[in-house]
Amino acid sequence: MSEVVIEAGKRHIKEINEDIQAACAAGHKVIVRNTLSRHNLGVGLPANANVHFEGSVGYYCGGLNVGATVTVERNAGWAVGEGMRNGHITVGGYAGMSVGAAMISGTIHVKGDSGPRCGVAMKGGNIVVEGRIGYQSGFMAHSGKIIAIGGAGHSCADALWQGEVWVAGPVDSLGVDVKVVEPTAEEVAEVDAILEPLGLVDSSRNWRKMISGQRLWYFESRDASAWLMI
């Protein structure tokens, strides 16, 4: 696979993305330089595309991905991989708010920390954060797994639906309607299978698995106090 270098700079984002798409369609691996933290870089990439962004990117990088492999050298802004249906995104540094918002499938791997509401409203797939996940991470996640090796900020797993939040490090506080359960060996094996290709398996970890307490699933007047906590 030959490499093509694309200069982002101050050009119109549509032009940059069209260049990326054309190079991907021609079967090249794409390296994007001079990204200047621009928004919407690599949104809507085709399956089998392989794109590397040098430096940092802005909002929605790799959003609506249908199967591309995307790497970001340093930091990503809001909602990296928003709404992605498939593929693999790696962020080398910090990922801002709402990592993988409403994603359906695929994997997002963040090597640093993540901002607030990581995995908000995600409907499937996996988010692996080597550092800490920010405030209110997992907020209203419908399905899928958020795996935080370094720990979690306040209000962790707030108002979770059917998603799961796995944390190995310290958790500042739990959100509304969270149940912390002891994972079974089979469940830990499932998480290790996600971490294995990333080279992150460590059998000595003490996982906490957070799931919904299901008190917010249906309104019950006797549970009004739980609703008022939101």
């Binding site: 940092s56 910090y94 708010m97 901002g115 607030p116 306040h154």
Partner: peptide, 8 residues
């Protein structure tokens, strides 16, 4: 080095 004041 960018500082993100993202927390509450």
């Amino acid at each position: 080095d960018v500082i993100n004041h993202d927390g509450p």
